[in-house]
């Protein structure tokens, strides 16, 4: 046996590992939609607890008039995370290039990747420089149903 991938996809397109069956609800749209309440609840509880257990050694920017802010790390974490995510768009436009930009075959391995970039549809010869010139193509393999599509339409 070598280190080359062993895909061995099941013949059954609805195959589910026995251990995963009790957790299939995690893939339901309703559960995904309502998942947001879990971190929100955690955030509220942790922030309320911050009132009773303030930071012992707060940084100057974690205090107002010398009083520690109970949810300072919550505010910081939310803002920091949002900033990082919002930076993604401009960064992608700035740094994103075609996968074969360096002429070394890109990151996917041509031996086994299912990347459509490596096997472009007939008549769709890639042109352009930036990765944005290449809108996402349908994945090879099992066809997607509408229900499978994520909310962002990917």
């Amino acid at each position: 046996m070598t280190d080359t991938p062993r895909r061995r996809a099941s013949d059954d397109p609805d195959y589910v590992h026995p251990a995963a069956r009790p957790f299939l609800f995690l893939g339901e749209a309703k559960v995904k939609r309502n998942f947001i309440w879990l971190p929100l609840a955690g955030l509220v509880i942790a922030s309320v607890l911050g009132v009773f257990h303030p930071a012992k050694h707060p940084a100057p920017w974690e205090t107002i008039g010398g009083t520690p802010i109970p949810g300072s790390w919550a505010i910081f974490g939310f803002l920091a995370y949002s900033l990082i995510v919002f930076a993604a768009g401009p960064l992608f436009r700035l740094l994103g290039r075609r996968e074969d930009f360096y002429g070394e075959g890109g990151l996917p391995d041509p031996d086994y990747s299912t990347d459509p970039m490596l096997v472009p549809p007939a008549g769709d010869a890639p042109v352009g420089k930036n990765a944005e010139d290449f809108p996402p193509q349908p994945l090879s393999g099992k066809a997607h149903s509408v229900d499978d599509l994520p909310e962002d339409g990917r």
Binding site: R33, I36, P39, L40, G42, A74, F92, R97, F101
Partner: peptide, 25 residues
Amino acid sequence: FAAIFAFTLLKRFRLYPAERRAEIV
């Protein structure tokens, strides 16, 4: 929790960027 909440919130409002094939220089 704040980070996870921000993630779910941004996903819900479709502000979280989709994963796209590219070479990031």
